[in-house]
Nucleic acid binder design. Structure first.
Lengths: 333, 333
DNA sequence: ATGAAAGCGCTAACAC
DNA sequence: GTGTTAGCGCTTTCAT
C-alpha cells in the first residue's frame, strides 16, 4: 500500500546493478554470478517485488497460462455443477500448476466462437484444454485447424485433428455389463444417451456383452441428469412394472437418480435390480447401498492432457490416448 | 495458421487509418465516426484479429482478470472436490463473466504466501476472491492490508479488514434446529466442527434453539467430510446405541455420511432420527430419503462478491453482508 | 560477468 | 475526426 509499485529497474538501482542483471538474476540465469543472483533475489523478496506478468508476457510472447473451457451442450441439462466435470477440472488444475502454468477458467460465453482468436491471438493463454467433447465438435476442430495448441477430454476413439484423452469407455461398458450378468442379471437396461461420443462407446460395450451372453436388453435414452433418470425409471415402473433386473447407467448421477426411483417403489437393490454406474464420484460410496461403478482415473488423464498440450507447445504432435478404467464393486450390484 | 499474427498496426494499414484510430474503433470510442468504427470492426472480424491482451494490459495497467483462490485448510480433509465449493466457484465464474472479467483459478500452491505480490504487483489479476475463510486468516489479512482488492466467501459476522459475504449461518442453524424440534425431536446432535467460522455460527444457532426449547443436545466434533460423519455415527451407534433422535449436520456431505450409517444399522429416517443438512447440493434431492437442508443462495452471494470486489477497484470500501438462507423441507425430517 | 539499448503491441495525451 | 508519438515494464542481443 502507499508506496508506489516497484519495478525491475527500481530493484536494479537498489541493488546497484543494471536492469538486465536484475532480470537475469531473478530468472536464475547462470550467466550471473551466484552470489549476485542470491543477493538480488533476497532483495526482491524483502521488497515484495514481483515481475509484471503483463510486461513479461508481452516481451516473451507467451503467457504461461492454459485455458480450460468447459464445453457443455446447450441442449442438454447436464450442468457445470456435475461433480464429475468439476473433479476433472480440479485435477487439471493441479496438473497444470505442477508444470508451472496457471489456469484460466473459461467457457463459451467469454471465448465466443473463435477460440484461436480469443485465447491464442489474444495472448490470453498458450493453449487450451477442452473438458467435454460434446456432440458438436466444429469449434474445437476450427480452433485446432487455426493452429491452437489444444487437447480434449472426451472419447479417444473419435477421429480428430487434435488429441483426445479419456477412459476406455467401450471396455468400461463391457466390464460393467459383464459384471451385471455374472451377478445373475438377465434383463438389462442401459440408461443414458448414446448420441454423446463417450456414452456411445459405453453403450457399444454394453451391447457387446449383451450379445455375447445372449441376454435380454433395452436402452432408454435420457438426458444425462439424475432428475431425468429418476423420472424415466419412475415412469417405466409405473407403466410396465419391473421389466429389468440390471441397470448400467451411463454416469453415477444417472445411477443415483435411478436408485432413488427404485427405492421409492420398494424395489430392492441389489436383490431385485442390480445397478452399476460410471465415474466413481464421491457420492458413489456414500449412497445407500453404495454404488458399484466404473472408476475413471481423472488424475492420470489430467496429467496426460497437460503433457500432451505442453508437447504441442514445443512443436510435437501427439495422438489420442485411452486411460484405463476399473470396476469398483460395492453393494448396488 | 501459417500467416503471421496480425497486429493492430497491420489492421490499421489494411483499413487505411492510423493505429490510434483502429484502437479507438475497436474499443467503440465515440470519437471515431460510427461508419469508420463499423468498417474497422468488420475488418477485424474478417481477419480474425484480436488485440494482444498482454500488450493491452501492460499499457492499461489493468488486467480485467479476477483471481479466485480456493482456500482449504491443510489440516482438514475437506477437499477441492466438495461439490458445494465447486458450485460456489462456478457461480462466481458466471458472475465474473457477466461483468466482463475473466477468472484465474488459483490456489496457495501457485500464489504462495504473498498474494498481493503475486496477483496484484505481478499484474496477474485486478482483484482476488477467496472461497473459504478457513480457520487461519493471516494471509487474507496481510493481502488486504497490502492494498489488494479482496473479498471473501465466509462468515460475514467475523470482523475483518475486508468484506465477507456468506449465508446467515446463525439463522440457518437456528431454523434447522427449530424445525427438528417442531417435528418432535428432543435429543439433538450437532455434527461438525464449530472451530470453523461459518460452522461455529451454525452451532450457535443450534445451541440457541436448543436452549429456548430446553431439549437435550450434544455435539460431536468431526472433520467436515461424509467419511468422518459416517464413521462417527457408526461408532456412536455401536458404543451407545441410539442416543439421539435429531441431527443437524453442518453440511449436506456430512448429513449424507450420517444417513448412510443410520440406514446400514436399520435406523429409520425420519421416523427414528430426523436429519437436516446445510448447503442444498444437488445430491440432497437425490438421496433417499431426500435430504432436508438449509439452502445457501450461492448465486446471489457470487454476484455480491463480484460487485463488492469491483467497487473496491473503483476505490470504494464495502462492508460484509449476509445472504438469506432458506429451509428446504424434504423427507429426511 | 555485466551493461546499454531495442522493441514486444498497445492506448492515450497531444497535435492538427 | 484522425494522426503522431511516447511509453507501459520487461527480456535479450550485442557490446564490453
Amino acid at each position: 500500500m502507499g508506496t508506489t509499485q516497484l519495478k525491475l529497474s527500481d530493484l536494479a538501482r537498489l541493488a546497484g546493478v543494471s536492469t538486465s542483471t536484475a532480470s537475469r538474476a531473478l530468472n536464475d540465469n547462470p550467466l550471473i554470478k551466484k552470489e549476485t543472483r542470491e543477493r538480488i533475489q533476497a532483495l526482491a523478496k524483502e521488497h515484495h517485488f514481483s515481475v509484471n506478468a503483463a510486461a513479461s508476457r508481452l516481451r516473451m510472447q507467451k503467457t504461461k497460462v492454459i485455458a480450460v473451457i468447459i464445453n457443455l451442450e446447450a441442449e442438454t441439462k447436464q450442468s457445470v455443477d456435475d461433480p464429475f466435470l468439476l473433479k476433472v477440472v480440479s485435477d487439471i488444475n493441479r496438473a497444470v500448476n505442477r508444470k508451472g502454468y496457471e489456469l484460466l477458467l473459461s467457457n463459451s460465453y467469454m471465448a465466443g466462437e473463435d477460440w484461436h482468436g480469443y485465447f491464442i491471438s489474444g495472448r490470453r493463454a498458450d493453449g487450451v484444454i477442452v473438458v467435454g467433447q460434446g456432440k458438436e465438435q466444429a469449434r474445437i476442430e476450427r480452433a485446432a485447424r487455426a493452429g491452437t495448441p489444444i487437447v480434449v477430454w472426451g472419447d479417444p476413439k473419435t477421429s480428430a485433428n487434435y488429441p483426445i484423452v479419456g477412459s476406455d469407455n467401450f471396455i468400461g461398458g463391457l466390464n460393467a455389463t459383464e459384471h451385471l450378468i455374472a451377478r445373475g442379471a438377465s434383463k438389462l437396461l442401459f440408461l443414458g444417451d448414446p448420441g454423446h461420443a463417450e456414452l456411445g462407446e459405453r453403450y457399444r460395450g454394453f451391447c457387446h456383452a449383451v450379445e455375447k451372453a445372449k441376454v435380454e436388453a433395452k436402452m432408454i435414452k435420457i438426458d444425462i441428469t439424475s432428475e431425468a433418470a429418476y423420472a424415466s425409471i419412475n415412469a417405466s415402473l409405473r407403466a410396465q412394472g419391473l421389466t429389468f433386473d440390471g441397470i448400467f447407467a451411463c454416469s453415477d448421477m444417472v445411477a443415483l437418480g435411478a436408485l432413488k426411483a427404485l427405492k421409492e417403489r420398494y424395489v430392492s437393490v441389489p436383490n431385485d435390480v442390480r445397478i452399476v454406474g460410471f465415474d466413481d464420484i464421491a457420492m458413489a460410496q456414500i449412497s445407500f447401498p453404495a454404488l458399484s461403478t466404473i472408476k475413471q482415473d481423472t488424475n492420470a488423464a489430467a496429467q496426460l492432457l497437460v503433457e500432451k498440450l505442453l508437447s504441442q507447445l514445443s512443436g510435437e504432435t501427439c495422438a489420442s490416448q485411452e486411460v484405463p478404467s476399473s470396476l469398483v464393486i460395492r453393494q448396488s450390484s
